[in-house]
Design a protein around this nucleic acid. Structure first.
Lengths: 134, 134
DNA sequence: ATAATGTCCGACCCCACAAGTCCTATATTC
DNA sequence: GAATATAGGACTTGTGGGGTCGGACATTAT
């Protein structure tokens, strides 16, 4: 209920790990999976998403791996969630999908008030960065 | 992702509806289900939970129904969620279940930082009341 | 008293989606 | 060219949210 997904958790753990390494130091999926006992393949997928999201850079081949593409202080948790989940953290689907996503939409009486909650939530996730979880 | 459940949404809609009725006016599940086109049985379950949670009072029999047991300004959204979901809104399960709930627990590197997020979230849901969604 | 109409509540189904797995292709190093 | 890394599509599995059904009990009206 209202929880972050495992994917996001794993992603944050990985990013934190990288943020603590000396700059430019590559980290492999294997290393991460071993260190934190995370499912390798799943983590690999997450890392690939982070690459596409521009959060980390990848180096292929032997001696390959990942490095941060941005400073930890610039990596907003909100962005990480958006990249990994393909959507912002939302309190209700109607804020993403619009009228088509919810058959109540037009006569939904709690949409506006929830909007307030949503905005506060946005602020929360926008403020927090990877820097803070080191 | 991080969404409120339908149950909570329905519950809020119902409470709002009741909050707008003249004091002491009973509202039936049927009336609510029709008015907002919500699944009757599910809504009934939710209402029962709200009764157990002390948020609404029930009157059985013909002419029965529900009335608010508290002022709308006293009905915190946080409480509603807790009552309907049997748990507080949590960003990660480890905050409810403790060590047994997550095999990472002791070497989880993001638990403490997420705790900050959690506390902020608590404040958010504690501040908002049914009064505000009228 | 009995029919009508409401709550109460346990048991159940369904399915979308999160979580995790498997397999193959491609890049890089030595 | 062998070893080791990422890239990525396809697949399986498990769980929980959402929804349904059926019957018991309470109250009122006739």
């Amino acid at each position: 209920m209202l929880q972050l997904s495992k994917k996001v958790e794993y992603g944050l753990i990985a990013l934190r790990h990288m943020a603590m390494k000396p700059n430019g130091n590559v980290v492999t999926t294997k290393e991460l999976a071993n260190e934190y006992d995370l499912p390798y393949e799943l983590l690999a997928k997450i890392m690939q998403k982070l690459v596409k999201g521009g959060v980390v850079r990848s180096l292929q081949g032997v001696k390959g791996g990942y490095t941060l593409a941005q400073k930890p202080s610039e990596l907003k948790v909100a962005s990480i969630i958006r990249i990994i989940e393909d959507s912002k953290p939302m309190v209700a689907e109607c804020y993403t999908d619009g009228p088509d996503g919810c058959y109540l939409f037009y006569n939904c009486t709690i949409r506006r008030p929830l909007g307030k909650l949503q905005r506060n939530l946005n602020v929360l996730f926008d403020r927090m960065t990877v820097q803070e979880i080191i």
